[in-house]
Design a protein around this nucleic acid. Structure first.
Length: 560
RNA sequence: UGGGGCGUAGACAAAUGGCAAGUCAGGAGAAUUUGGAUCUCCCAUUUGGAGGUUCGAGUCCUCCCGCCCCAGCCA
């Protein structure tokens, strides 16, 4: 696939034009600028793929830069997890691991410069007063009484702010722009605030910290970024981004905004995600139901699938809601090609083959991956007592149900044709066992007389199978856009987002599998060994189901 | 009500004044030792609406409608 053969998004279009015009000396340099105050999620993956992807495509660079200008919210643990996640997604920032805090001294000097130019002043207004003076969306603001302080006084005050002479909230440094601007960001924005807080990198060296708008453009400039790509809500901030760089006469990257990702049936705001964790609706950021990168990883998603998803959703400026089914499609597509097939019965129903000899078993050949024959074959033990899936038997089969039923013959995959001759129930009427006969002539799964069966079931040998726990995950939210109707996203939490099955029977060959190993459980879905597994107790997470035509038929039958 | 954006199918998303791509979802069928995967076909006479310019408009112009973002010493 070459660049010219697929449609190009508007950002790549801009970059092509810039290259054509030899802007920025024909360099392309982007950056991914997370704040280390939380874990990365699939929405960040979109930005990561965009920024690192563009750098790769245009033979440029992408920096990893931590936007660490607020020590009250940021932690080193988040830095660690962010680096892990970006790396896991398959991107490499090489030696370009930067921190906005690396530039604090430089930023301070630029602030002094702004003061000297009469473009910034120290303001003594309280937070409440600043808000009052700012005006509203429709009324313009009014000038701070401190706006016209002499330069010398500003210089003195700013230095004393830095020296720790004032308490939090008592003073700010503000840019002197325009209190009447229709763009509220331009109404003398705060550029430094006093925060007596220990920073995870600079320790106690600073007690004043720059605000985002001021720090971000300068960081981009220092790093020689060419295209500073961010999300739509920063569009209103671009005039400020440009103002600082223009006033300071610094190298000037261009900010370009795109629409952040929204995914159906989940939430992607950091605030909501934190709430889910803190209130115990999920077990943590890496709960497999979380759209966090760590959650998706634990769920069994591959970096390839996520990158592919990010490619497919495109990049544009309009707000959108991407259907979760597209993400699911991407992981199925990847796993179909790569996952080893295996037989696992998650809701076991015992089957006795009455005409099969006791005290013996045989080993049958099974294909590891029909999509990739180089993955070879394996042996699967077959014996008189087996387990099949409870869903694969119906005493009174509805129309179009092709699976096992009384007097009906089906194939056991890679084994024999079997026919159900008796149904054993307990005193409460629940089916506890099926009695079947098998046809020895059909070994391997084909009948020499050419007769056909309409279904093939997976199975495991009762004696040889091993027990496992299987965790079935569904959408975390029942609504496409959680909280849209009620106003509270938590009212739409799916009470059935996790179902734990503790008595699953799996092929003996899986005994040696390790955390992170992925398999297709034939006819069920893709699964991944969870890191909660221990020796002798395997736990599998369902990554995603297989497409299920029968479930659709059944659903439409019920709806009739 | 000020400022900044955005409206193409159920969900994404192309189109750069010249026949409304592609993908997911959905539907029908073929084949099938996974009701999986695969393959074939169907799914916008029309681009938020109304006018206008033009031989020709999703694209240009005018007006209208709708949706999103902004009033942190968060990012």
């Amino acid at each position: 696939m070459t660049e010219s053969s697929k449609p190009v998004d508007f950002i790549r279009e801009i970059i092509r034009e810039d290259l054509k015009a030899r802007k920025y000396d024909s360099r392309v340099h982007t950056r991914f600028p997370p704040e280390p105050n939380g874990y990365l999620h699939i929405g960040h993956a979109k930005s990561i793929c965009l920024n690192f992807g563009i750098a790769e495509e245009f033979k440029g660079f992408c920096n990893l830069r931590f936007d660490d200008t607020n020590p009250t919210k940021e932690e080193i643990e988040y830095v660690k997890s962010i680096k892990e996640d970006v790396k896991w997604l398959g991107f490499d920032w090489q030696d370009r691991e930067f921190y906005a805090s690396d530039y604090f001294e430089q930023m301070y000097r630029y602030a002094v410069e702004l003061i000297k130019m009469g473009k910034a002043y120290v303001c003594d207004l309280s937070p409440d007063e600043i808000r009052e003076y700012r005006g509203t969306l429709i009324e313009s603001g009014k000038d701070s009484p401190y706006r016209n302080r002499p330069v010398e006084e500003n210089l003195d005050l700013f230095e004393r702010m830095r020296n720790g002479e004032f308490p939090n909230g008592s003073h700010t440094l503000r840019a002197k722009i325009d209190m009447a601007s229709g763009n509220i960001n331009m109404r003398d924005p705060v550029i430094y605030r006093i925060l007596h807080a220990e920073h995870h990198r600079t320790g106690n060296k600073w007690c004043i910290y720059p605000m985002y708008d001021y720090a971000h453009c300068i960081s981009d400039s220092i790093e020689g970024v060419t295209h500073s790509i961010c999300t739509l809500e920063f569009e209103d901030h671009r005039p400020l981004y440009d103002w600082f760089l223009n006033e300071l006469k610094l190298y000037h990257p261009q900010q370009i905004e795109f629409a952040r990702l929204n995914l159906s049936n989940t939430v992607l705001s950091k605030r909501k995600l934190i709430q889910l964790v803190q209130e115990g609706h999920v077990s943590g950021w890496d709960d497999p139901r979380m759209p966090a990168i760590s959650g998706l990883r634990r769920r069994g998603y591959t970096p390839e699938a996520i990158r592919n998803f990010c490619d497919r959703i495109g990049v544009a400026k309009r707000d959108s809601m991407v259907d979760m089914s597209l993400l699911e499609y991407c992981i199925r597509e990847d796993m179909n090609k790569t996952a080893q097939r295996v037989m696992a019965v998650i809701r076991p129903l015992k089957v006795v083959i009455v005409n099969y000899p006791e005290d013996t078993f045989e080993e049958l050949d099974a294909i590891n991956n029909p999509e990739n024959t180089s993955m070879g074959t394996r042996k699967v033990p077959f014996s008189r007592e087996l387990y099949i899936e409870r869903d694969d038997f119906r005493e009174d089969p509805p129309k179009q149900f092709f699976r096992l039923a009384p007097d009906r013959e089906v194939r056991l995959r890679y084994a024999y044709f079997v026919k159900c001759i008796d149904v054993v129930k307990d005193s409460s009427g629940e089916i506890i066992e099926l009695r079947c006969t098998y046809d020895p002539e059909t070994k391997g799964g084909d009948a020499p007389d050419g007769r056909k069966v309409k279904a093939t079931l997976h199975w495991v040998s009762a004696l040889h199978s091993i027990n496992a726990e299987v965790r079935l995950y569904n959408h975390l939210f029942t609504k496409i856009n959680p909280g849209e109707e009620s106003g509270d996203f938590k009212t739409d939490i799916n009470p059935k987002s996790l179902e734990i099955l503790r008595n699953c029977k799996i092929e003996p060959g899986l005994a040696s599998s390790k955390a992170g190993d992925r398999f297709q459980f034939e006819r069920i879905g893709y699964f991944c060994v969870d890191h909660d597994s221990s020796e002798g107790k395997l736990i599998f997470n369902r990554t995603v189901t297989l497409r299920d035509t029968w479930a659709k038929i059944e659903k439409s039958q019920k709806e009739k």
